[in-house]
Amino acid sequence: MKLGSVAREKTRSGFLAEVRRRSGTNPADCYQCGKCTAGCPLTFAGDLDPARVMRLVQLGQRDAVLQSRTIWLCASCETCTTRCPQEVDLASVMDALRIMAREAGLTQAAREVAIANAGLLGSVKSRGRVHEMMLVLQQNLRTLHLFRDAEKGPVLMLKGKMDPLGHKRGARDQVRRLFENVARMEAAERAASTTPRCACSDEGGEA
């Protein structure tokens, strides 16, 4: 990570402003006390601790943040948001960063999480409700962990916890239209905003 061009990058990319707009909270309020890092149950698993993510957002380090694993490992448990002395809603910042990373196609750092998220939403989109068994099978297929949790299948079937015939469904047509509308509206909103979709693309001439 290069910090030599901090000031220029910050003003040029408007990354901080974009995160602020999308998250509804101001990352500039963070004074780096580290209480989020101290309380985050997933600090051990991430590549950046939460306070570091906030700092890099402040410094406009778009790529470093959007390519990090941490934003995908955030379990949205809201511990950070609850305890932040500066009332920064970090959980919302993480949501905003995940959305921006997905838009920019930068989900390589945590493919499995991205796949799981897409899988659940796919299930909701087609059935109105989640079909858990389908979810597990899809996840294993798409991540090539074919036998992950395989031994649990028979147990779960036996206990009646996995029903291959699926659940009831809810308001499928309404939900499908809802998904389509959201996709259409957000595409329009993105087109209207001049923010570049990926910092990598406008990086070229500067080096």
């Binding site: 949501d95 959305i99 998220n117």
Partner: peptide, 8 residues
Amino acid sequence: TPAHATSH
């Protein structure tokens, strides 16, 4: 969580 991590 997948919904709010994908689109507000």
